[in-house]
Lab assay of single mutants.
Amino acid sequence: LQAFIKTLTGKTFTVEMEPSDTIENLKAKIQDKEGIPPDQQRLIFAGKQLEDGRTLSDYNIQKESTLHLVL
């Protein structure tokens, strides 16, 4: 599935991932794409901060969901 990552500066980019991917995997993909170390990334979806060990499906993240990236 493709999801949108929106930063506080208003920049939006897309990442490809599977519902079974962990938040940790997602942070690694963001690092590959944007060069931001995972330990500096905080991802917010539906008002909740996402925990590394959980999966996208745990948070009911669907295709074309928008996640907010806070540094």
Rank of each mutant, 00 (worst) to 15 (best):
L1W: 12
Q2V: 15
Q2N: 10
A3K: 02
F4W: 10
F4I: 14
F4D: 03
F4Y: 12
I5T: 01
I5H: 02
K6M: 13
T7S: 06
T7L: 14
T7C: 08
T9E: 11
G10V: 03
G10H: 04
G10D: 04
G10S: 03
K11M: 08
K11W: 10
K11L: 10
T12C: 10
F13E: 01
T14K: 10
T14G: 05
T14F: 11
T14S: 10
V15Y: 03
V15R: 00
V15H: 01
V15S: 00
E16N: 11
M17G: 03
E18G: 10
P19G: 09
S20T: 11
S20V: 04
S20C: 08
D21I: 05
T22I: 04
T22P: 03
I23N: 01
I23K: 00
I23H: 00
I23G: 00
N25F: 12
L26F: 03
L26N: 01
K27Q: 02
A28L: 15
A28Y: 13
I30Q: 00
I30E: 01
Q31I: 02
Q31P: 00
D32V: 13
D32N: 10
K33E: 07
E34T: 15
E34C: 12
E34R: 06
E34Q: 10
E34G: 06
E34V: 14
E34H: 10
G35V: 01
I36W: 15
I36H: 10
I36E: 01
P37I: 05
P38D: 04
D39F: 10
D39M: 08
Q40Y: 10
Q41S: 03
R42V: 15
L43I: 12
L43S: 00
L43E: 00
L43D: 00
I44H: 11
F45A: 03
F45N: 02
F45G: 02
G47F: 04
G47L: 03
K48F: 09
K48V: 14
K48G: 07
K48C: 07
Q49V: 15
Q49G: 05
Q49Y: 13
L50H: 01
L50G: 01
L50E: 01
E51R: 05
D52E: 07
D52L: 04
D52S: 07
D52M: 04
D52T: 06
G53W: 14
G53E: 10
R54T: 07
T55K: 12
T55N: 05
L56S: 01
L56M: 08
L56T: 03
S57Q: 12
D58V: 03
D58K: 02
N60M: 08
N60R: 07
N60F: 07
Q62P: 11
Q62K: 12
K63A: 15
E64Y: 15
E64A: 10
E64W: 14
S65P: 08
S65C: 08
S65H: 11
T66A: 05
H68K: 05
H68C: 11
L69Q: 01
V70R: 08
V70Q: 09
L71I: 13
L71V: 12
